[in-house]
Design a protein around this nucleic acid. Structure first.
Lengths: 349, 349
DNA sequence: CCCCGCAGGTATATCGATTAACCAAGCTGG
DNA sequence: CCAGCTTGGTTAATCGATATACCTGCGGGG
């Protein structure tokens, strides 16, 4: 019974296997991997080699248990019935985030939820189970309950949106979205447009309010008023309905500004279907600069807000809050207007 | 020093806190949560209540360490330079997967990689660190190295693609993609088209070959040959270039079939830009049924392969392989043709 | 010559949950 | 009247990695 117990377990190697292979204790292996303690250089090398050819890396769960850090961040995406607004935006965002996480060995835990209640319940669970070190909050709302919730849960977070007084959590990027809208309005004015309408997102979203305010202010500064404003839920149906209404008005707008590219595409289709030429009879502007916009006919004029960069900045900020030390990201780029073919001089009445 | 040590730790409650609150041992708490052991009903209730108002859930890392199961699956997305093909497809897929994971308390770890080497290295790391219980492999390739790799790593996996002889891992869905292409060709034939061209994806992708084969066979069965076939990397640029070439041919095709909707949209734009009317002069068919296709002008005729359902089926299969017991998903739906406005009778020469 | 200090490690408790083994009453049947 | 079963729990070992405290030679200064 006390014989040689070389019984190989089925699973992957553990720190013990590496220690045995290198002829040291498990503590030494740990020290070799974390550059702590005092090990002779030769020993360290021997250990690293042993680990390498056993294909060993420290178990994530064991390390997480011991250190109370999971090296995982959460991204929760609210996915409404209709995906029109959210999708491409999130792909870009995720790309930006992942670009910062991957090189540091962090993972991104992605969840989809239907509504805010579900989202809150999810954060409660993630915090209780200690499944993640932090979370990226998207789509800042007016009176957003999430920062307070996450603070109460003790879960580090960043919020994508414009800075507000009640900064429970750091806010990243999207700060000067107004700038994009401002440029759009100025550009349309230069083209001679005076009847400009805005197809906005849901009123409860922070950026909706922000951009709308800038839209109205910029027009006001030019002595104009919006031809009309329609709120939507970012759905295709709402975009089409809003467009139809706007085009049916007695004093038809000559330019339509949309809160995102997807809706703008719907808008162009709707206008064309109604027999209008874009941009000869109607100018259309989107927001987001989706790749697709470049290949439509006409190509979509839009605002590039570089979501990917915002995602990267958010990730860095969050990582910093999670104890990683890295140079803080400055996000100085402003959204910029991308003029293409869907906009042109205002038609002569 | 031996006084009352009621020192509350800063962090979230542990199983000890719950045990203390309920006046039992930690073992009892565990049993109450897992319906094991033999506890009096009253005790069980008392424990659950205590846990509830302390807001306690078992720590994911501790449970993972003990049980060697993380309740997390990996999805690795290869994101080439240009996102045209991949994006919306993956959003749908993720939605389908998440729909199965969420109710079972599983999480989805999302990673983006640049190429196959990076992808393989990532699987090695995920396996070594025991960070996930399994992985969903997308974009089956000819001679795909990943199934063998994952098998070697002992990581359960499912592959999205068509069944092949070397089934190292189970294969889910997308099996009868050919069916969609078959319908497309038949439909175009009925409209009188005889010069039909195909804009395919990268040749190394399994579904590219599969669909292309069906395309050619179906045409052959009707006594026809493809007007032309172009391979692309799913990028916008390649789609546009391929379209231009095809339209410049001496015997111009009257119908263009694309391997995905994004390319089809580029195709329509390119054709219109070349002065062709869609569908009067040229019929265009996509593949995927993206939401956007419905709102273009003209609305895109396409093939709906219900990626979301495939994602759900993949998740169920993978969960089953990870030890969850759930009824196996039957995936009986075939891709179906969605006829809209981008296709019409062949023009008279 | 003896003790100090340091280089180079090792032994062990710990993170939080689970579980196999065990134990104390209470009851029953022979 | 007590062996033996059942009920309702508890104790302690364990998962894998890490950190603290500790140990063991060996060289050198006093």
């Amino acid at each position: 019974m006390s014989g040689t117990r070389t019984t190989k377990k089925a699973g992957r190697p553990t720190i013990k296997a590496v220690a045995a292979a290198a002829g040291v204790s498990t503590a030494a292996v740990s020290q070799a991997f974390n550059d702590k303690g005092r090990l002779a250089e030769a020993t360290r090398q021997r250990i690293l080699e042993a680990a390498l050819d056993l294909g060993w890396s420290p178990s994530a769960s064991a390390t997480a248990l011991r250190s109370a850090r999971t090296r995982t961040l959460a991204l929760v995406v609210r996915r409404p019935t209709d995906v029109l607004g959210a999708d491409p935006h999130f792909s870009e965002l995720i790309t930006g985030i992942e670009g910062e996480l991957a090189p540091r060995g962090y993972g991104l835990l992605l969840h989809l939820v239907a509504d805010v209640e579900e989202e809150s319940a999810l954060y409660e669970r993630l915090a209780a189970e200690k499944r993640v070190d932090g979370a990226v909050l998207t789509d800042a709302r007016a009176d957003d309950p999430r920062p307070a919730l996450l603070t109460r849960l003790g879960l580090p977070a960043v919020l994508l949106g414009a800075p507000t007084p009640t900064a429970d959590v750091p806010v990243v990027g999207l700060g000067n979205q107004g700038a994009g809208v401002h440029e759009v309005v100025d550009y349309l004015r230069e083209l001679g447009h005076t009847r400009i309408a805005y197809v906005a997102g849901p009123a409860e979203l922070q950026h909706t309010r922000l951009r709308l305010a800038v839209f109205e202010e910029t027009l006001a500064a030019a002595g104009l008023a919006p031809a009309a404003v329609r709120h939507t839920d970012f759905s295709e149906a709402a975009a089409v309905a809003a467009t139809r209404e706007l085009l049916a008005a007695p004093e038809r707008p000559t330019a339509l500004v949309y809160a995102n590219d997807s809706m703008a595409v719907c808008g162009i289709g709707t206008a064309q279907r109604a027999g209008l030429r874009v941009p000869e009879d109607l100018s259309v502007v989107g927001y987001d600069n989706l790749p697709l916009g470049r290949w439509l006919h006409p190509r979509l004029t839009t605002v590039d807000q570089q979501v990917q960069r915002v995602g990267a900045a958010a990730a860095r900020t969050l990582l910093a809050r999670c104890g990683e030390d890295l140079p803080a990201a400055r996000l100085d780029e402003r959204p910029r207007l991308v003029v293409r073919e869907s906009t042109g001089p205002a038609p002569h009445n």
